[in-house]
Amino acid sequence: MTKPMLLAEFTRLPPATRAIVLDGLSGAIDLVAEAAPETHRFLRYQWFAAALAAYGGSARTILVERDGDPVIALPMIRFGPAPARLAAVPGCYWPFRSFPANADPGEGAFDALLDRLGQEVNALRVGPVCDGDPALEPLLAAARTKGWATLDRFVADSYILDMAAANADGGWPRNSTLRKNRFHEKHLGDHGALDWEFLQGAELAAGGFDALAAIEEKSWIAARTDGRDAKFTTTGHGAFWRAAASDPVLAKMLWAALLTVDGAPAAFSFDVNAGALKYAVANSYDPAFAKHSPGKLLYYRNLVRAMADGIDTVDWGAGDSGYKRVIGAAKGPAIRDWLLVRPGLPALFGRALRGMWERSGQRPAAPVVDEVSSEPV
């Protein structure tokens, strides 16, 4: 008679990890996003679907599974000449372009991703994305170990407002700031009745996006540019945000503060709320009210509301650092655009073009010098 084996005698096999390629966007993207760091849970199926609908492209998804559970999802679209076999992560530039990965995907997950990726493409573009991105950093580390060329170009510096620290250091906003804001609000009220609203995705989809677009159509972006960079107009990126808001989970993350004067849209601030972090995506105002700083008044109200809702940090992204520094933001991680080029001849060719790729980016801004102390700010 065979003696039964004791539980202690069984050898536990390591988790099985595999990477597969699926045509289109995989529905498992949402499962991975839900297990990603809270700051990256907006990278859902509909986020990428909205990008394809707004900007075009046909996607494939590399899905990495551990014991059958999805832990990394890498959507990608082809670009450039077909023989070059180039791909990019789709999405919107605001707040960044990355892909979802489980906060703990397990040993070997990114190795499996790269092995499958190298069979599909010669090079992958990821970005623009901030230094320290939780999906990109382990991907870069694995790529360098495996002999991939990793090329980056600087795009901009990000700016981060730590409201929790500022509030602990004597209160934020300062009482002097609040007094100035009340003064401006009083005179802005001479133009008509002021109404301050906060809208989430459902309200935005039901007419809120149209109000934001109406402000952009009166703003400097319409007067001084061709309008293609506007976030919510039909000639700008409005199709993306409207499509993204069709996902109820994403809709709850989308947030806008809106100021109306006598019922007419006058200023807005638009964000993506990701747990305790707020991504400040866009803000604008009607220049008819510029004398009274409606945009400033609105985003201070918006940030005070954010603190009350448990948000303690604001990622302002790139762009004009002047008003961001006045609020209290400091320079954060650099934003870069990355090319990962597979080993062999593609990597040799990529390394030869490193300088060209770097020069196609931006130059880091020179340090701002305080005229009184002559020290970099």
Rank of each mutant, 00 (worst) to 15 (best):
residue 311 I to F: 04
residue 24 G to K: 04
residue 170 G to M: 08
residue 20 I to G: 06
residue 325 R to S: 04
residue 243 A to M: 03
residue 155 V to K: 07
residue 125 R to W: 08
residue 91 G to M: 03
residue 177 T to W: 05
residue 137 E to G: 13
residue 356 M to P: 09
residue 252 K to N: 06
residue 110 F to K: 10
residue 40 H to A: 08
residue 273 N to Q: 13
residue 59 A to R: 03
residue 5 M to P: 13
residue 184 H to W: 02
residue 285 Y to R: 04
residue 371 E to G: 05
residue 313 T to E: 09
residue 50 A to E: 03
residue 329 A to L: 01
residue 72 I to S: 01
residue 341 V to W: 00
residue 57 G to K: 09
residue 306 A to E: 12
residue 252 K to R: 14
residue 335 I to F: 01
residue 34 E to P: 09
residue 343 P to F: 15
residue 354 R to A: 12
residue 159 Y to R: 09
residue 148 W to M: 10
residue 181 N to T: 11
residue 47 W to L: 13
residue 25 L to M: 03
residue 87 A to I: 07
residue 102 N to G: 11
residue 88 A to P: 03
residue 164 A to M: 09
residue 330 A to E: 07
residue 271 D to F: 10
residue 4 P to H: 00
residue 70 P to H: 01
residue 169 D to L: 14
residue 55 Y to R: 06
residue 277 L to H: 00
residue 94 W to L: 15
residue 257 A to C: 11
residue 352 A to D: 08
residue 25 L to P: 02
residue 107 E to S: 06
residue 100 P to V: 09
residue 261 V to A: 10
residue 347 A to S: 04
residue 153 R to N: 07
residue 155 V to Y: 08
residue 138 P to D: 04
residue 169 D to H: 11
residue 290 A to P: 11
residue 188 L to I: 00
residue 340 L to Y: 02
residue 99 F to T: 09
residue 321 S to A: 13
residue 270 F to G: 15
residue 63 L to T: 03
residue 271 D to S: 07
residue 186 K to E: 04
residue 310 G to D: 14
residue 87 A to Y: 11
